[in-house]
Amino acid sequence: MVMTAIGFDTLSASKRLREAGMDQPVAEAIVELVQQTTMLPDISDLATKSELAATRADLQTTKAELKADLKNEIALVRADMALMESRLRVDLSEKIRLQGWAILGGVAVLMTISTALIKLIP
């Protein structure tokens, strides 16, 4: 984060503390601490209320567009699923019909064999 300094005369402050009887390292440490507390964060890059309002409006528009797109996608998926279900029903119906014919054929063969066996066995 970039900090902006408020005007603070560190040399004068350090000199005054030394004149008041402080050792130089202590005076310099105090001046450094005071200087750090006078640093303000640079807020020039922060968004203004109007920029935030514009961004909020853009987000609302984007949200509405995404919602509409999602509804369309869901409708397409549902249509695909309905078509797939229809195809599966047709396939299943055809397989059941073929199995029915196979069973009837098997029954006919068994009846023919049993009739032949009845005639052959006295």
Rank of each mutant, 00 (worst) to 15 (best):
R87W: 10
D23G: 01
A53P: 00
T115I: 13
A27S: 02
R56I: 08
S93A: 15
M39F: 05
D58V: 04
I30H: 01
E73W: 05
I30L: 11
I121K: 12
L83C: 01
A82D: 14
A68D: 15
K63G: 08
A68H: 11
D91P: 00
T37W: 03
V109D: 00
I30K: 06
S14F: 02
E73L: 11
D9W: 12
P122Y: 12
R97Q: 15
K67T: 14
I118R: 12
A20I: 00
L92P: 11
T10L: 11
D45Y: 06
D58A: 15
M84K: 14
M1Y: 03
D69N: 13
R97D: 14
E94R: 10
K71W: 01
A20W: 00
V26W: 00
P41M: 07
L104P: 00
M81N: 08
V107R: 03
G100F: 02
Q60V: 15
E65L: 03
M111N: 07
G106H: 10
E85V: 09
I96Y: 03
R18P: 07
V107I: 06
M3E: 08
A79M: 06
M22A: 08
K95P: 11
I6P: 02
A13G: 02
A79C: 02
M22Y: 15
L92H: 15
A75G: 03
D69A: 12
I74C: 04
F8S: 12
S86D: 14
G21Y: 03
E73C: 05
I113A: 13
S93G: 15
A108C: 09
V90Y: 13
L117Y: 14
L33F: 07
D91K: 04
T48G: 00
R16A: 09
I118K: 14
P25V: 01
T37N: 06
A20F: 02
I103C: 14
V109I: 11
K15T: 05
Q36D: 08
V77K: 07
Q24H: 10
D69L: 13
A13C: 10
S114P: 00
S86E: 15
L120R: 14
L70F: 13
E85M: 14
V26T: 09
D80L: 02
L92G: 12
I103E: 15
D45F: 09
G106F: 14
E28M: 04
S114I: 09
T55I: 05
V26K: 04
K63H: 07
P41L: 08
S114M: 03
K67C: 05
P41H: 02
L33G: 07
A57E: 12
M84I: 12
I30C: 06
I43F: 04
D69T: 09
V2I: 05
E73F: 01
I96K: 07
P41F: 01
P122M: 12
Q24G: 09
A75K: 11
Q24R: 13
A54P: 02
T37G: 07
R56P: 00
L120E: 10
A53K: 11
N72K: 12
Q24V: 11
M22S: 06
S50G: 09
A75S: 08
D9H: 00
A79N: 08
K15S: 10
V90P: 09
A20Q: 05
W101F: 13
E32D: 12
P25N: 10
A29D: 15
S50W: 01
D9S: 04
R78W: 00
L66Q: 13
M84L: 15
T115K: 05
